[in-house]
């Protein structure tokens, strides 16, 4: 699971959970993949991303390197920044671990890079 995916997932579908965002991460296997960089694509994705959530996730995994805490102004033309964003969003992957609902503590296992967000009927 890429951190881009983490940025869009919530556990709000659990009965009694209001926001369920962001999910906490416990990772036991993290890998860094090599993904083709496309500055135009990353630039168009930035407005959709909850940046502090991405920053905290990448920091939690120990891959923050020199990713800025905030998106810089005129980031569209800042290739150095876009490369760092690309790395954080698409290259850092959680292979095994779990996501945890911030409100209920419900754990969602991640195996082979696939989070299991399926709930039991009595949780919905």
């Amino acid at each position: 699971m890429k951190l881009l995916t983490h940025n869009m997932l919530t556990s709000k579908c659990i009965r009694g959970v209001n926001v369920g965002y962001p999910l906490s991460i416990n990772a036991s296997d993290v890998r860094v993949a090599d993904v083709d960089f496309n500055p135009d694509f990353i630039s168009r994705m930035i407005p959709k991303i909850d940046w502090p959530v991405l920053y905290n996730a990448v920091e939690r995994l120990g891959h923050v390197e020199d990713l800025p805490k905030e998106t810089p102004v005129n980031y569209e033309s800042n290739e150095d920044f876009l490369k760092k964003a690309h790395h954080a969003l698409l290259e850092v992957e959680i292979i095994h671990g779990e996501l945890v609902c911030p409100e209920s503590g419900r754990k969602f296992p991640i195996n082979n890079g696939i989070p299991n967000m399926l709930l039991n009927e009595d949780e919905i």
Binding site: G113, I114, P115, M117, L118
Partner: peptide, 8 residues
């Protein structure tokens, strides 16, 4: 490169 999540 495709992300997949098990959910309803």
């Amino acid at each position: 490169d495709i992300e997949c999540v098990q959910m309803d």
